[in-house]
Deep mutational scan, measured.
Amino acid sequence: MLEGKVKWFNSEKGFGFIEVEGQDDVFVHFSAIQGEGFKTLEEGQAVSFEIVEGNRGPQAANVTKEA
């Protein structure tokens, strides 16, 4: 699992990017966010995740919000 911070997330469109120190930003789709209820992320929020190869390159999977 990697750790990063949410760079930005558009809850209307359901996607955004996660910043990872020393690496390129990683695309995140709302469907990759773990948990119940409305799936969104806040700018600057700490998250842990895995990287998988998507249709358009690397993207986040199994995203969990850090306490």
Score class of each variant (00 low, 15 high):
A46H: 15
V28S: 02
V47C: 04
G35W: 09
Q45S: 09
E50N: 09
N10A: 08
A32W: 05
V47E: 00
A67S: 12
G22C: 05
F17D: 00
S31W: 10
N10E: 05
G4A: 03
W8S: 04
K65H: 09
A46Y: 15
S31G: 07
T64W: 14
Q45H: 10
K7Q: 03
E12R: 15
K7I: 07
M1P: 14
M1Q: 13
A46Q: 12
A32F: 06
W8D: 01
K7P: 00
E21A: 13
E36P: 10
K5H: 09
G22D: 07
Q23L: 12
E43K: 15
N62T: 09
V20F: 07
K39G: 06
E21L: 13
Q59H: 10
D25N: 10
A67L: 11
E12K: 14
L41W: 02
F38Q: 08
F38C: 06
E3K: 15
E19I: 15
E43P: 15
D25W: 07
E12L: 13
A46V: 13
N62K: 14
E53V: 10
D25C: 05
M1K: 14
V52S: 10
S31L: 08
S48K: 15
F15D: 01
V52M: 11
M1V: 13
E3S: 15
V47D: 00
K13A: 09
V28P: 00
G16I: 01
E36F: 08
F49L: 07
I18E: 00
F49D: 00
G35D: 09
S48M: 12
S48A: 12
V63A: 03
G35R: 04
G14H: 04
I18D: 00
G44A: 06
K13S: 08
G4D: 00
K7E: 02
A60R: 00
E36Y: 08
G54E: 07
I18R: 00
E12P: 08
V6A: 03
V26D: 00
G44C: 04
S31Q: 07
R56V: 08
M1H: 11
T40K: 09
T40D: 07
E21M: 14
E36D: 12
W8T: 03
V63L: 10
V6L: 04
K5P: 02
E43Q: 14
V63N: 01
M1I: 13
Q23W: 12
G44H: 09
M1Y: 13
I33C: 04
E12S: 13
V20C: 05
F30I: 05
W8V: 04
E42I: 11
K5S: 05
K13F: 08
E43M: 15
V47K: 00
E43T: 14
F9W: 15
T40L: 08
G4I: 01
G37Q: 07
L41M: 07
F27L: 04
F17G: 02
K7L: 06
Q45T: 09
D24R: 14
G14P: 00
G57E: 03
G16R: 00
F38A: 07
G14F: 02
A32P: 01
G4R: 01
D25R: 05
A60C: 04
G57V: 04
D24N: 12
G44L: 04
A60V: 03
D24C: 05
Q23K: 11
D25V: 06
M1A: 12
D24S: 13
A60F: 01
F27A: 02
E53W: 14
D24Q: 14
H29M: 06
E21Y: 12
A32R: 04
A32N: 11
G14Y: 02
E50V: 09
T40Y: 11
G44V: 02
N10C: 06
Q59I: 11
K7H: 07
I51L: 13
G22I: 04
N62V: 07
G44Y: 06
G22A: 08
I18Y: 00
N10F: 07
G37F: 05
S31K: 11
N55L: 14
V26K: 03
N55T: 13
E53T: 13
G22M: 07
F30V: 08
V52T: 10
H29F: 12
E21P: 14
